[in-house]
């Protein structure tokens, strides 16, 4: 500031210097905001992972994909028994049959998805042309519609079956969500993040209240699962549902439990939430479909 004053009083052409200064200051501000924006997702992810690894030091980071069973020994044993005859097996079979059955135009899902459907690791992603998040389930329906078939309902049923089959084919692929250098993509990520941490509904809970700061605690007899790895194992067979459900079905269920109005599955905000939450688990394995209580 002092320097500025001296220059201004000493300088021969004050307005020229002023102009240069404004340019410098503007450039600095732009650079800083660019850095703070782009430092976002990466450092968010590191802090998120560290939050859970320090909260549950006995759990190896790669094990968080097993949800509550990664932090609860007694229920893990039961779950491992269940996994010997997994309740989602029927869904995989039905999904496989659907995968192989040609559409009316004689094309199949294989014309939309490469690698025998083992593409779980490519979703969700930011589509720069469409300026929106594309999820696996959205892509499945777009494949159907492009081939003249009716779109499927997103929460359960056939959609969950095909998603289960493709997830099964993709087991072991790494979660590697990319948020590109694009203000629209960043804004989508930020909206998902804000949704995650905001309290909502009459009961006033955020997602993080239960699955972050509350994770590991008991609600009645149920232990709250940690958020790290949360999207890795969907779709899931849930005993409470008595059947399969997609990730967005679970989002809706959580929202209703806190007495908030649920959003539609595959609505923009749920896809952005999926983008954020999956990004938080970058580096872990996809291991769907799963079985949960």
């Amino acid at each position: 500031m002092i320097f500025l004053k001296i220059r201004l009083t000493e300088g021969p052409n004050e307005s020229e210097i002023m102009k240069k200064l404004i340019v410098v200051i503007t450039a600095t501000i732009t650079a800083f905001s660019w850095i703070s924006l782009h430092a976002g997702p990466d450092s968010d992810q590191a802090a998120f992972e560290k939050y859970f690894t320090s909260k549950f030091p006995d759990t190896p980071v790669s094990d968080f994909i097993n949800g509550v069973y990664s932090i609860d020994k007694p229920s893990r044993e039961q779950w491992e028994e269940i996994e010997e005859f997994p309740p989602y097996e029927l869904a995989i079979d039905s999904g496989k049959a659907a995968w192989n059955k040609p559409f009316a135009n004689s094309k199949t899902y294989a014309d939309c998805f490469e690698n025998e459907g083992a593409v779980r690791g490519n979703y969700p992603y930011w589509d720069a042309d469409r300026k929106e998040v594309v999820t696996l389930e959205l892509a499945i329906n777009e494949c159907r519609v492009a081939n003249g078939e009716e779109p499927l309902k997103y929460n359960k049923g056939k959609m969950a079956d095909i998603s289960a089959y493709m997830s099964y084919q993709s087991r072991g692929q790494k979660i590697n969500v990319v948020i590109p250098d694009d203000p629209d993509a960043m804004a989508a990520y930020e909206r998902g993040k804000e949704f995650y941490y905001s309290k909502r509904g009459q009961l006033n809970f955020s997602c993080f209240d239960c699955h972050g700061s509350g994770s590991g605690n008991l609600v009645r007899a149920d232990k709250l699962s940690p958020a790290l790895g949360h999207t890795s194992h969907f779709p899931v067979y849930r005993s409470k549902w008595g059947g399969m459900g997609t990730l967005h079905r679970r989002f809706g269920g959580c929202n209703k439990q806190v007495r908030a109005a649920a959003f539609k599955p595959q609505s923009q905000i749920y896809r952005e939430l999926e983008l954020f939450l999956t990004y938080m688990s970058n580096g872990l394995d996809f291991n769907g479909p799963g079985a949960r209580k």
Binding site: G214, N217, L218, V219, R220, A221, L224
Partner: peptide, 13 residues
Amino acid sequence: CHMIDDGTLPGNQ
């Protein structure tokens, strides 16, 4: 969330 009195299966949030 709270252990109370003779209530069964209390949480510990």
